Simulated scan of single mutants.
Amino acid sequence: MKKRSILAGGLLFVGLFAFYWLHVVKTDSRPKNEEILSQINSSLQNSQAVDIQDFLKLDDGHGVAPFISDKEQYGVSYWERHLTAWKVISIRTDGEPKVWMLDGSDPSSFHIVWNINPGSDIQTLQYFFTRERGYSSSGEQQHYVPGILMKTEASLAGNSYGAMKVPGEWGDALTLSDGSDVPDTLFGDNNNMGIHSRFGWIPLDENNKEVEWNNSINNSSYYKGNVREQHMQLLDQYQIQKGQF
């Protein structure tokens, strides 16, 4: 009888813990700023984080903590929720826009992440998904690939940082073949971006004029585990107007 009571008590504890994890901790929690600083600074070597600007939850298990370093770098750290705590899985001291692919086979999980020094003249970030048009033939088979140009924008008014889910139509375009047979190992087996497709961006000032982007050569980064991150090509308005992307 005593053993049954202990077993029942154990099962009740497990059930309560599971409920707490699924409905309270996992949904509402975020790491404290002190813990974010500690984990970042225990990993970086050439600089130290001194100010945690925010913690942006992307879903129940992933988040982004933008920060400022002691060298006045505006950086980004990527976080993943583990069973008992949040763990940092990637840190970079440059805030240039990049795409974090939470699930490489699911474009709906992709997020553009950035942290731009507010001391620059940049006020608006234009983001693009582009695909070159092309044509190929093999024997009697002909294959035409239409070009794609999609744009979205993010304002820096109020915050130097942000995280934006990739628009749904971009996700649809990512599932279309561009006619290339070259695999892209950054993406899962079910989602091949192809060699003719690109993510890109253009920084603009308050008058919607291009701003020259000067990325510091003293940036550093740290990765722990398999973090899927896609570079965004720096474009210019002339390229977009002429279709030269």
Rank of each mutant, 00 (worst) to 15 (best):
K3G: 01
K3D: 13
R4H: 14
S5Y: 14
I6H: 10
G10T: 04
L11Y: 03
L12Q: 03
V14F: 13
V14D: 01
V14W: 08
V14L: 15
G15K: 01
A18H: 13
N33I: 05
N33A: 13
E34H: 09
E34K: 12
E34S: 15
E35T: 13
E35V: 14
L37R: 01
L37V: 09
Q39F: 04
S43Y: 14
L44A: 03
N46M: 13
S47F: 15
S47C: 13
S47D: 12
F55A: 09
K57S: 05
G63S: 01
A65K: 03
D70M: 03
K71M: 07
K71C: 02
K71G: 00
E72S: 13
Q73A: 08
G75K: 10
Y78S: 11
E80Y: 14
E80C: 01
L83S: 14
T84C: 08
T84P: 04
A85W: 15
W86Y: 15
W86K: 08
V88F: 08
V88K: 10
R92V: 15
T93R: 10
T93C: 04
G95P: 05
E96M: 05
E96G: 00
P97Y: 08
P97L: 10
P97A: 02
K98R: 10
V99C: 02
W100T: 00
W100M: 09
W100I: 09
L102H: 05
L102S: 01
L102E: 13
S105I: 01
S105G: 12
D106I: 10
S108R: 09
S109L: 10
I112A: 09
I112C: 08
V113D: 00
D121Q: 15
I122W: 02
I122C: 04
I122R: 03
Q123W: 07
Q126Y: 12
Q126T: 06
F129D: 01
R131E: 07
E132D: 14
G134R: 08
Q141V: 11
H143S: 12
Y144R: 10
I148G: 03
L149T: 14
M150F: 09
T152W: 13
S160W: 14
S160T: 08
K165Q: 15
V166H: 05
W170P: 00
W170T: 01
T175C: 05
T175N: 05
L176I: 10
G179L: 05
D181Y: 06
V182N: 08
V182T: 11
P183A: 04
T185K: 07
F187V: 01
D189C: 00
D189H: 00
D189V: 06
F199V: 03
F199G: 06
F199N: 03
W201L: 04
I202P: 05
I202F: 09
L204E: 10
K209I: 00
K209H: 08
K209C: 00
E212W: 02
N215W: 03
N215P: 01
I217L: 09
I217H: 06
N219V: 01
Y223H: 10
K224R: 12
G225Q: 07
R228P: 00
R228D: 04
R228F: 13
M232T: 08
M232Y: 11
Q233V: 04
Y238W: 11
I240A: 06
F245V: 14
F245P: 06
F245S: 02
